[in-house]
Simulated assay, not measured.
Amino acid sequence: MALVGYARVSTLDQDHTTQIDRLKVAGCKKIFSEKKSGTSKKGRTALDECLNYLREGDTLVFTKIDRLARSSRDLHNLVHDLEDKGVTIMALDQAIDTRTPHGKAFLGMLAVFAEFETNIRKERQLEGIAKAKQEGAYTGRKPTAQAKRQEMEKLLAEGMSKPKIAKALGVSVASVYNVLKSAA
């Protein structure tokens, strides 16, 4: 039976050293870490490697439940898959240890709150963006491809292909097609 650690922060400028240190103190000999958003399981290669590494009797250890998953569905799916493998989980900052019935129950409750927190944050962001737009402070990204319409039309008239136009102007091929389609 091994304690296997998993540490995660959401962005590249964040640091997961404290999490890793705490996992070592907890007795984890093998630790997987990454800098990826936890809103989805997709694209989290260190988590995938960790899940493949775990064996029956192991315990997956992390500092907080939201380090593992922000979606209650992802969390429940992960826990279900781990239980099928005979792997338990433990969160250091919360009373979660799925080796006990109390830990399993608490896990379910915290999963709901982690997802709720994510949804509230999204709602606040959208409200902030709407307010900034109203005040004229948020205008969004400038349409780069539309600004290059004349150059695109000129290059197309000279016989250049749309993929080559995209490369020459530093825009996507889809943008070239969209801009030239709306010009016709």
Rank of each mutant, 00 (worst) to 15 (best):
G103Q: 01
A111W: 04
P101N: 09
F116Y: 06
G103T: 02
A95M: 10
G103N: 02
I96P: 03
R99M: 11
A91C: 12
Q94Y: 05
R99V: 10
I120L: 15
G103L: 06
V112L: 12
D97T: 02
A105F: 05
V112A: 13
D97H: 06
M109G: 09
A95K: 08
D97E: 03
G108L: 00
T118L: 15
A105W: 00
I120Q: 13
A111K: 03
F116P: 10
N119A: 14
D93V: 09
A114V: 01
H102Q: 13
L107Y: 02
A114T: 01
T98H: 05
I120D: 10
M109H: 00
T98C: 06
T98D: 07
P101Q: 06
A114G: 10
R99T: 12
D97K: 06
M109W: 00
A95I: 03
T98W: 01
P101W: 01
T98Q: 04
K104P: 04
M109I: 11
A114C: 05
L107D: 05
G108S: 01
E115S: 03
L110H: 02
M90D: 09
I96R: 05
E115N: 07
D97R: 05
A114R: 01
D93N: 15
G108A: 00
A105C: 04
L92H: 06
A105E: 04
M90C: 12
A95L: 08
G108D: 00
A114S: 11
Q94H: 05
A95Q: 09
M90K: 14
A111P: 08
K104N: 09
V112S: 14
P101K: 08
V112Q: 10
N119D: 15
A95E: 08
D97G: 08
